[in-house]
């Protein structure tokens, strides 16, 4: 079994254990499927591979755990959507995903508009944004131009100072997991 890791349109060769399987106008980054139990270290190793790749080419990460029999199966699974995936690559090219979560810092309770105000400010500094469901007052992903990441983080810090009633966490950069599928899904 092989694991499907990411979609790319860059044809340049990959370093072992990664291989590139052509599928129409895009390619699939694959690796031998890891048979071991998925633990945190295994996930971070997989993520490292993707993040190294992300620094040198545009990619769309594939949902974790996607496995097929062989290269032919990989091409067959991806090729029908090649056009759509090529368009998605254009949307994310030159950008990374940044995660922001905000919870109440304690007393006093944050006003109802605070998380929304934070989100709107950050959305304005990003190419695209996606709100996620979660236990926090705000859980969002932002697609940020490579060159704008430092500015984005500075904006997060400024917002944290402006909103001491919130506890804000910002992590990244991540491959564009939240922007890989078209929004209409």
């Amino acid at each position: 079994m092989i694991e499907l890791l990411a979609i790319t349109d860059d044809p340049s060769p990959l370093r072992s254990p990664l291989r590139l399987v052509p599928a129409g106008e895009v390619g699939v980054v694959v690796a031998p499927a890891d048979e071991g139990e998925a633990d945190a270290e295994a996930l971070w190793r997989r993520e490292s591979l993707l993040e190294d790749l992300m620094r040198e080419r545009a990619l769309l990460p594939i949902r974790y755990g996607t496995r097929v029999e062989d290269d032919a199966a990989a091409a067959a699974a991806v090729a029908p959507r090649a056009g759509e995936l090529a368009a998605a690559l254009e949307r994310v090219r030159g950008a990374v995903e940044v995660s922001v979560r905000a919870v109440a810092a304690g007393d006093p309770e944050p006003g109802p508009g605070a998380p929304e105000a934070v989100h709107e400010r950050l959305a304005a500094a990003a190419r695209e944004n996606a709100l996620h469901a979660g236990p926090e007052l705000l859980r969002a992903a932002y697609l940020v131009d490579d060159a704008e990441v430092d500015g984005f983080v500075a904006a997060v810090r400024a917002l944290q100072h402006e909103h001491p009633e919130l506890s804000i966490l910002c992590t990244g950069p991540w491959p564009p997991y939240s922007f890989a599928e078209a929004p209409e899904r």
Partner: peptide, 21 residues
């Protein structure tokens, strides 16, 4: 640990969905 929460959120809910098993 907090980074792992963000990673898992992405691995389980994000990414392109090819044929799943």
């Amino acid at each position: 640990e907090v980074a792992l929460v963000d990673l898992l959120d992405r691995l389980l809910g994000g990414g392109v969905v090819i044929a799943g098993e």
